[in-house]
């Protein structure tokens, strides 16, 4: 079956002064439209490399990535990225940061008024409409990440790529943002790939969790289907036996199966 987003036998080698470093070994993954997939694994296992290849920021040594029937070979706004440390332009306000993306993507299809509406709509979606004229330096880490998500969503991407989007945030702020992401997801039904190292986050948000083995030569170890009804509520799920089972599965993988069984 052909997925909406297909990662086909992707290998990635990096040239280092000590010779070739094999980062990824035969990564194959099919993702359906509207699916929320998490990539989880230990630090340095190549999760970000996979994401960067899908984003087009890295070019794989072998294999290919197909999105909606087209091969990915350069970065583009149809694969919007939410970076770990927000990556907002510090000299622009929240509004201007989103505007930069909107102007770039919709310059031929929207007029000024429509753009303005669309920018405000996206900031409202992430609950940042109260701080549209603030610069990144004037708002908290969680708020910056919200603006980052608004900027990515405003590009109307075919697939939204999130690189540990909440990694740098404290637990409470993280929970708030996870709830926001679930809310937005139920509304827009985006296709999402999210990198995380937080087991709870992965189980709570995902339709599938892709667990990666440790590098070098990292690959996909196991894929876990999360069959929990939506909308999900973190408090109700805390005592849910199915939820706890999924959680345990992921933890077991992370603690027991570290390395690629096929790698030499």
């Amino acid at each position: 079956m052909q997925g909406y987003l297909t990662i086909e036998q992707v290998h990635m080698d990096f040239d280092t002064p000590k010779g070739t470093f094999k980062a990824l070994d035969n990564v194959t993954l099919k993702i359906d439209k509207g699916e929320f997939v998490s990539l989880i694994g230990h630090s340095g296992c190549g999760k970000s490399t996979v994401l960067n290849i899908v984003a087009g920021l890295l070019v794989s040594t072998q294999g290919s990535v197909l999105l909606d029937g087209k091969e990915v070979n350069e970065p583009g706004p149809e694969r919007a990225v939410v970076f770990q440390n927000h990556s907002l332009l510090p000299w622009l306000t929240a509004y201007q940061n989103v505007e930069l993306a909107v102007k770039q993507v919709f310059k031929s299809s929207m007029n000024k008024k429509e753009m303005d509406e669309w920018i405000k709509h996206n900031l409202r979606l992430v609950h940042m409409d109260h701080a549209t004229n603030k610069r990144p330096g004037e708002i908290s880490g969680g708020m910056k990440q919200r603006v980052g998500i608004a900027r990515a969503l405003a590009m109307k991407p075919k697939v939204l790529l999130m690189d540990e989007p909440f990694g740098a945030l404290d637990a409470l702020t993280r929970a708030h943002l996870q709830d926001s992401v679930m809310e937005i997801q139920s509304e827009l039904n985006n296709t999402v790939i999210m990198i995380t190292h937080d087991v709870d986050e992965a189980v709570l948000l995902s339709d599938r969790i892709v667990m990666m083995t440790n590098g070098p030569a990292a690959t996909i170890g196991e894929i876990l289907e999360i069959d929990l009804p939506r909308p999900r509520h973190r408090l109700e799920l805390a005592d849910d036996s199915k939820y706890n089972h999924y959680r345990a599965e992921v933890l077991r993988f992370l603690h027991e199966r570290h390395s690629n069984p096929n790698a030499a």
């Binding site: 984003a55 087009g56 920021l57 350069e74 970065p75 583009g76 706004p77 694969r79 919007a80 990225v81 970076f83 440390n85 990556s87 332009l89 930069l100 993306a101 770039q104 993507v105 590009m155």
Partner: peptide
């Protein structure tokens, strides 16, 4: 900042 370079690449500025 490399992240900002990546932003400009993703946006195809």
């Amino acid at each position: 900042d490399n992240d900002l370079v990546n932003v400009s690449k993703v946006l195809r500025l």
